[in-house]
Nucleic acid binder design. Structure first.
Lengths: 154, 154
DNA sequence: GGCGCGTTGTTATGTTGTATCATTCGAGCC
DNA sequence: GGCTCGAATGATACAACATAACAACGCGCC
């Protein structure tokens, strides 16, 4: 997230969950309790979360949870565009633009650990131009910028 | 690589190794036999290579090789800018622009497996503008586009 | 000769992700 | 009611990727 002031993160989670429920309903796919719980865990912060960290949390309420439980839920959520995988961290992050077509670009702070999803049409355009020039058919874009966010650079 | 015609890959490897030797010499760092061998293995193709695949190859001539052997060599080569890590594949690729400051952007074909390193000033500029706007201090950029290359799309 | 430092050897372990098959459960149908 | 089918989950095992920690070696240098 980009706000410089603290935000009501409970509301933030609630919004994300409500939107997820609505989207899954529209698409006639099942946001099961496990999937919803995993989504909530990922949304607990704006920091990318590892799959085994999700597993730890999930285990508290769901003793049967095993790695495949988590990975299946994560795969579902990614397929539905509700979360993103941060490749450079092997971690997962709630998508703030779920349901809106967009490409994912991230600013990841190595100090506070937060990852901000940015939407930059100019960057998209540059990417498109570059791939078109190479006659490359794009299926997936990974843009992950690591460094220090505005708050941590001081 | 971007050429549509086959190229002399032996020459390609030789060039990369020669440049690496020259750069390491300039910098007074040691391109030891293990490191050079690992670099040669990575350069055997223009496809990203996994660390354990490197280990398999290295083991043929170097029986003592273990995971740390390989990862130390890879870390050295990355630090010297001689190879890149492709985060979305957990694999490593020879850098065609070693010694020249540049940001790494890759077009990765899911069909033939080749990864082409592109240099696109417009893309760089867009990235810079986006991060500047967010007052984000960049340390590392990961741009990896997956899809189908011009040869495989047909 | 002994010290410091960079490199490699060695063993063990940590972290991330999948394969495979069994089981459950609800919707639609006869 | 009993069937079947498919989606989701349970359960076990394993594969793939990466690092920790300490020992040993070799070489330049005082």
């Amino acid at each position: 997230m980009s706000s410089d002031k603290p935000h009501d993160h409970e509301a933030c989670i609630d919004t994300a969950l409500a939107r997820a429920r609505s989207l899954c309903d529209d698409r006639s796919v099942q946001l099961t309790p496990i999937r919803e719980k995993v989504l909530a865990i990922v949304w607990k912060s704006h920091k990318p979360v590892g799959a085994y960290q999700v597993l730890d949390e999930l285990s508290r309420t769901h003793k049967a949870a095993r790695p495949p439980t988590v990975y299946r839920a994560l795969d579902f959520l990614i397929a539905e565009g509700l979360i993103h995988k941060i490749e450079s961290l092997n971690a997962y992050l709630g998508c703030g633009e779920a349901g809106v077509p967009h490409t994912s670009q991230f600013l990841i702070c190595r100090d506070c650990g937060t990852a901000e999803e940015i939407v930059d049409p100019a960057l998209d355009k540059a990417l498109e131009a570059a791939t078109k020039r190479a006659r490359f058919t794009v299926e997936r874009k990974v843009v992950e910028i690591a460094g220090l966010c505005a708050r941590c650079v001081h």
